[in-house]
């Protein structure tokens, strides 16, 4: 049986939720885990709600279904709280991480009776400060890594730096900004 840690991402097409799920798969793979990272595919357009998933485990993963009872949920766009049942199946002892400027107690009434832990981060503020542009997925990635405690923060940052250097080999100037977004996000999530 699968004893994997299961994470569900909710975002809108174009915000990079799928990329963030694949980056989380990458970074946890690098710590020796078995991983899955996959989006739910459909006729996606910019701005349409999308879902992506991660499984992270010490054992090989055989199950190939979507995730219905996640340990953690990441909401990349808080306007989805109105249209998508983001806490559906979310385990009580898990947590939800929401990209929002609002206080967590202000958000709780929107979560359809969810009783577990809520974390927030203002990913827009972090992204604008670090990158000068709004890319919410990088801060959200750091936030979920911190909240689920899947790996030590220094290890996470070291792995991500290596990964960014590889990914942005042709434009190394963006590595520092992305690293800043990660370190800021690790502090800002609460």
């Amino acid at each position: 049986m699968s004893k994997a840690l299961e994470i569900r991402w909710h975002g809108r097409g174009g915000q990079g939720a799928k990329t963030a799920a694949l980056l989380l798969a990458d970074v946890t793979f690098n710590t020796g885990k078995y991983i899955q990272g996959f989006p739910e595919y459909g006729p996606e357009r910019m701005g349409a709600p999308i879902t992506a998933y991660n499984r992270i485990s010490d054992e090989p993963i055989r199950v190939h279904s979507n995730i219905y009872y996640p340990d953690y949920v990441v909401v990349v766009d808080e306007t989805l709280l109105e249209s998508v049942d983001v806490t559906k199946g979310l385990k009580k002892d898990g947590a939800i991480v929401i990209n929002s400027t609002r206080d967590k107690e202000e958000l709780r009434p929107l979560l359809k009776g969810y009783e577990g832990r809520i974390y927030t981060i203002d990913a827009r503020k972090v992204s604008i400060a670090a990158l000068g542009k709004y890319f919410p997925n990088t801060p959200m990635l750091a936030a979920i890594v911190k909240v689920c405690g899947i790996m030590p923060e220094d290890k996470f940052l070291a792995e991500m730096e290596a990964s960014f250097k590889h990914k942005f080999a042709s434009k190394p100037e963006v590595v520092a900004g992305n690293m800043k977004a990660l370190t800021m996000a690790l502090e800002e999530v609460r």
Binding site: F29, Y34, I35, Q36, F38, Y41, H64
Partner: peptide
Amino acid sequence: QDGFITSHAVQN
């Protein structure tokens, strides 16, 4: 192989 389920899912 299975479309999306294995073709687009990243795994070890």
